[in-house]
Design a protein around this nucleic acid. Sequence first.
DNA 1: TATTTTAACTTGCAAAACCGAAGCTAAAAT
DNA 2: ATTTTAGCTTCGGTTTTGCAAGTTAAAATA
Lengths: 137, 137
Amino acid sequence: MKLRSHCPINFSLEHFGDKWSLLILRDLMFKEKRHYNEFLDSEEKVSTSVLGNRLKLLEKLDIITKSTDDVKKSRIKYSLTRKGLDMLPILIEMIVWGGMYDSYTAASTAFLSEAKEDRAYVISEIRKKLEKEHLMK
Amino acid sequence: MKLRSHCPINFSLEHFGDKWSLLILRDLMFKEKRHYNEFLDSEEKVSTSVLGNRLKLLEKLDIITKSTDDVKKSRIKYSLTRKGLDMLPILIEMIVWGGMYDSYTAASTAFLSEAKEDRAYVISEIRKKLEKEHLMK
DNA sequence: TATTTTAACTTGCAAAACCGAAGCTAAAAT
DNA sequence: ATTTTAGCTTCGGTTTTGCAAGTTAAAATA
């Protein structure tokens, strides 16, 4: 992977600076989705070809990993890596901004005000949960 | 503008979910750039057609505004709106993430550790400065 | 005064990305 | 033995992107 520059913002953008990648991350972080078909039927209707492509990319960038499902061994489970999990604050800020400027936002006002007033706590709680579900065993 | 969904993350992505828009915002926030030609010679080499297009888009979305330059009245000066300024925390988190995972990052370790340890202060200081330069008069 | 340069775009076209439908493979359920 | 589920890949058409070149109008220079 060749970078256009080593500006940290550009570095981030070259990792997930497209619409679909971040929506997959959102599904992993906030919607408990872990499987291909679950990502497929998101509200935003990603096409299966784009989804396959992005999953592969995110895996290559070490933001997510694949493993076999705990119950059905023929099923593939996607997990966040630590690198992926560390993106949580970015997503939280995007929720806050989007929630603030979209008058029809789907975000609950309860979540939005807690994220604003007690940001560190909200992040650490979500993070704790995600670490348990994605990084353990 | 028709949204794919009212998920706050998707809302944010549909506003600036492409590489170039965020690089323009970065230039406005952290590189003191205010004019077309300054954006043009960024390290990442945006093409003039893309730049023109993005500036127009960001203006339509009320993230930036155009005005005549203070000294030369034939020159156009770009400013952040409050809505654009409110994106600062997102950019900061992207700097932190990019700075953490790029071993050749251009971000100074001083800035990175201050942003991590004293985030609220760093943001409010930058914000204060940007408000003065972009929102006043 | 004539010519060049600066500034901010616009246009045209090729390349890349996207999207929907169809196909493919292996395991699981019926 | 057949159908369904899961996770993809491939195909072709449409849309979006991005580089190069051209445009316009004001300002600086000769």
